[in-house]
Design a protein around this nucleic acid. Structure first.
Length: 878
RNA sequence: GGGCGGGUAGCUCAGUUGGGAGAGCAUCGGCCUUACAAGCCGAGGGUCACAGGUUCAAGCCCUGUUCCGCCUACCA
């Protein structure tokens, strides 16, 4: 029996524990009977806590996995966490700072030990939260990107790409975060426009008179200038090319060169070139063989090359330099200017383009294959509009900087020979130099970008590089479900790596869901203070209501806005389901559905109707889930549960409970409700299980492993369903009259029905109990089609029936007139539009015949209604 | 600069080959009808951003305008 009131706290933990105990979530690679369905989880940061994005993402995955598991698939959901290099290192460093210790105090090995300890202590948090949400991952397969197995995969891939020349080490301008003390990839830089200035600075010619004025947004970099460039076709400067200017303050002589990339229109048409601190400038320096001068250290502090500014922070230097330039007459102008500023996505520090030696992946050849895979539909990207974005990025892909100057991560498997300088890249530590046999080797201290290891996730988690049974069984995965924000970071890289090392795409579908925003559509962030905590939501409304809300929000390709109000609305929905369960259970005590054999002749019209509606819901829900139309699935189920099953069928079933066919009603009631719970289970696992376990006629021990509902063609009665709709229309008609003319609900009415055919009269006669109970009617009198209409009645017209409610002594005549006036006006309007359409020759000639036919039918219906309404109105007067 | 998405009821949003404008919440009126007042019954409310075009027919397709949001970019 169910508790009187639904309380999520009573049931969620209980069932999750049971599911784990029964090992339902485990997918067996030796099971050869079932078709396979697999998903790998986007691994959350090991130090992270569950946020709304995770909640949405994992709810959507869980829905697919539970659906497929119930539907007979060998369904694997591979779980795990990501070591999140920079993020985790930052967290642990902050923790240590609280104790007054820096990572340098500890040293590399001790610090890494500290991070592992941190992970032991806090790494399980988010996993527990996923369980709270109901995630049905195969937990015994839990992986971590720093596990020995996955680390082996990383080394193998690195060495293999290096041997092929697809990984190389080179000096290049990278995005340097002076706070993280590391290079980061292009993707990890966030661009923002900020108010700043454009400085115009005078560079005097070295010999004789004259000067060149350059414009810059970063004046401090002039300390590292090694030339001034102009466009070769710029006549203003033709004579100056080849001459030298003197760099103010530092008094270095630098040449004026001509280069085609210089924009004549911008500023003065002359640009200062700082090869060590700007990508364009660096590339230009290669073309012209220029000197390269690094003027800052790794913390963004000016170094000895900055002369008098040595030791000052880069922004302090900018200010001081400006003052000095002005005092010495070099500053020509300073105008307000919007500049794009790159910031570290982790710590928001301003990124410094910085010349350093880094490791890169040559991505072009990998990207080509990844593009082809999507073009050939071996992988589908959904919603489709993201395909273009994917192509765009892949086509313009730049080499990927994979080295990070931090400690927490996969250490790059490269060693340098201290004697001969040879670089040895190897999966295992080499004993001696491959070139000179020296044992004097030093390992690379850099670690790899975290995304390098996540890029291998779909196969490294399954045991690669060993050719495991899991790989054979579950690779490629069916779908990757993730947020669009990591399409490049992660999805693109998995595509490249999967194709390269497995020879096959990592997933058949990529479903990209939207980002979760707050009610105002703002991105959630700690600084804005608009974070909605999923755990709070679950505490307040229960995991099921929360999941259902997320599912209903997840319209394809749209932002997801969380609204407390809506989540609460779905909490009420769960409550509705619960109460319906109480109703069902209280009416089937001692009833055994298996004792009955169901045949159509035993079923009432209402039974046939609800069974037909159920089939439709099964069809719609399945196709919605198959196509990742989550909100459609949720909406369909919501509509059917509340407004079809509860509002109508349960009410219809009440009077049937006392009839002789009551057992069949009980059967249908139980069957429909049980099926409904099964349809809902992937979305609301806990409450569906709780109620389902109380129902009779179960054939498995848990809803988790019961067959997902299939359309039952033997219990499909579309014609009967239409008849039932007619009856419902009569009920609605009476209710509408009641509502609008202020008839007291306690007043039981007599009505007169005028029907089109004797068949209809028989049908209504047979099921008049429905009308009597649901519309609160006592006497029903039928009159024939040709008979005179009763006077002084309110009228409701349906497509098949005219419903007369005698007014005298019952209702307000004027109210009814008003009501009819409104109806007449509306019907007239509809009719006019319809008529116009049907008088249009073009329509009759060109529209599809079935469309025309339909329009004619609708027009006739409107004609019929209007005529009745007008007559009723006239009769009111009499 | 390039690309993408959006502007539909007071609010938040659905609307799948072009063919009767929808939901939830809010609002108004009436109900303790024995599963549920976290509920039931009834009702009101929209020139589908704007302007053109294609079509017999446009919220939906095309063009332009405008306003928002996001992604991307080496114009100092």
């Amino acid at each position: 029996m169910l508790h009187r009131e639904y309380d999520p706290k009573d049931i969620e933990q209980k069932w999750y524990d049971m599911w784990l105990k029964k090992n339902y979530f485990h997918a067996d690679e030796d099971d050869s009977d079932k078709p396979t369905y697999s998903i790998v989880i986007p691994p959350p940061n090991v130090t992270g806590v569950l946020h709304m994005g995770h909640a949405l993402n994992n709810t959507l995955q869980d829905i697919m996995i539970r659906y497929k598991r119930m539907d007979g698939y060998n369904a694997l959901w591979m779980p795990g966490t990501d070591h999140a290099g920079i993020a985790t290192q930052n967290v642990v460093e902050k923790y240590l700072a609280g104790k007054g210790v820096s990572r340098h105090d500890l040293g590399r090995d001790a610090f890494i030990d500290e991070v592992w300890r941190w992970r032991e202590k806090h790494g399980g948090l988010i996993i527990g939260q996923l369980k709270r949400l109901g995630a049905s991952c195969d937990w015994e397969r839990m992986r971590f990107t720093m596990d020995e197995g996955l680390s082996r995969a990383v080394r193998k891939v690195f060495v293999s790409l290096y041997d092929e020349g697809l990984i190389y080490r080179s000096d290049y301008i990278v995005n340097w975060c002076p706070r993280c003390h590391s290079a980061i990839s292009d993707l990890e830089v966030e661009h923002e426009e900020e108010d700043s200035f454009l400085w115009h600075i005078r560079y005097p010619l070295a010999d004789g008179d004259g000067e060149v004025v350059v414009a810059t947004t970063r004046p401090e970099t002039m300390l590292g200038d090694t030339c001034v460039a102009v466009n070769p076709s710029d006549e203003r400067y033709t004579d100056l090319v080849g001459k030298e200017v003197v760099l103010p303050i530092v008094n270095r002589r630098i040449p004026i060169v001509a280069d085609y990339v210089v924009d004549k229109e911008f500023g003065t048409g002359a640009v200062k070139i700082t090869p060590a601190h700007d990508l364009n400038d660096y590339e230009m320096s290669l073309r012209h063989g220029l000197e390269v001068i690094v003027i800052m250290d790794e913390s963004g502090i000016m170094n000895e090359n900055a002369g008098p500014y040595k030791g000052r922070d880069r922004f302090v230097c900018r200010k001081d330099l400006e003052t000095d330039l002005e005092e010495q007459g070099y500053l020509v102008d300073r105008t307000p200017y919007r500049v794009p500023v790159g910031k570290c996505y982790r710590c928001k520090s301003v990124i410094e383009p910085y010349l350093s030696k880094q490791w890169f992946v040559r991505t072009k050849p990998l990207a080509e294959e990844a593009i082809k895979a999507v073009q050939e539909s071996r992988t589908r990207i959904l919603p489709k509009q993201w395909e273009k974005t994917y192509y765009e990025w892949m086509n313009n892909i730049r080499d990927w900087c994979i080295s990070r100057q931090i400690w927490w991560g996969h250490r790059i498997p490269a060693w340098y020979c201290e004697d001969c300088g040879e670089v040895i890249v190897s999966e295992t530590e080499p004993g001696a130099c491959s070139s000179c046999s020296s044992a004097n080797l030093r390992q690379e201290t850099d670690v790899l970008d975290t995304w390098f290891s996540s890029g291998l996730w779909p196969f490294s988690t399954m045991g690669w590089p060993d050719n495991t049974k899991a790989l054979q069984k579950f690779y490629p995965t069916a779908v990757l479900i993730t947020g669009f924000d990591i399409l490049f970071f992660w999805v693109a890289r998995m595509m490249m790596m999967g194709i390269k090392f497995m020879g096959d795409v990592p997933f058949g579908d990529v479903y990209l869901h939207a980002l979760v925003r707050d009610e105002q559509g703002q991105k959630m962030s700690k600084s804005k203070g608009n974070i909605v905590d999923p755990i709070d939501e679950m505490d307040q409304y229960g995991a099921d209501a929360f999941r259902f809300a997320l599912t209903a929000f997840a319209a394809m390709g749209r932002d997801v806005r969380v609204s407390d109000k809506r989540i609460q609305g779905y909490r009420f929905f769960i409550n509705k389901i619960w109460n319906a369960g109480k109703f069902v259970l209280s009416n089937i005590e001692g009833f055994d559905p298996k004792s009955l054999s169901i045949s159509p002749d035993k079923l009432s019209l209402a039974d046939k109707w609800i069974l037909t509606e159920l089939n439709k819901t099964i069809r719609d829900t399945r196709s919605a889930l198959d196509e990742y139309r989550y909100n459609d699935a949720a909406d369909n189920l919501y509509q059917f549960t509340w407004h079809t099953f509860c509002d109508w069928y349960i009410e219809l079933s009440k009077p049937m409970m006392n009839e002789e066919n009551a057992p069949y009603t009980r059967w249908v009631l139980t069957h429909v409700y049980k099926t409904l719970l099964e349809l809902l289970h992937p979305i609301i696992p806990f409450v569906s299980e709780e109620i389902w376990q109380n129902l009779p006629g179960r054939t498995s021990e848990s809803i988790v492993v019961t067959q997902y509902p299939q359309v039952n063609h033997e219990l499909d009665f579309p014609d009967d369903a239409r008849m039932m709709e007619c009856l419902n229309d009569v009920i609605s008609g009476v209710r509408s009259i009641r509502g609008e003319t202020n008839i007291a609900p306690s007043l039981v009415l007599d009505i007169v029905l005028k029907v089109k055919s004797p068949d209809m009269e028989t049908l209504i006669g047979t099921y008049s109990v429905f009308i009597r109970e649901l519309a609160r009617v006592k006497g029903i009198v039928f009159i024939a089609e040709g008979a005179p209409r009763p006077r002084k009645c309110a009228l409701a017209v349906t497509s098949e029936v005219e419903v007369y409610v005698p007014l005298e002594g019952v209702i307000d005549l004027d109210k009814e007139k008003e009501r009819l006036d409104k109806l007449i006006a509306k019907t007239r309007k509809d009719l006019e539009a319809k008529q116009k359409k049907l008088e249009n020759k073009g329509f009759l000639e060109k529209a599809k015949p079935e469309i025309v036919e339909e329009q004619v039918r609708l027009k006739e219906e409107l004609d019929f209604m209007l005529e009745r309404l007008l007559k009723a109105h006239a009769l009111l007067e009499g």
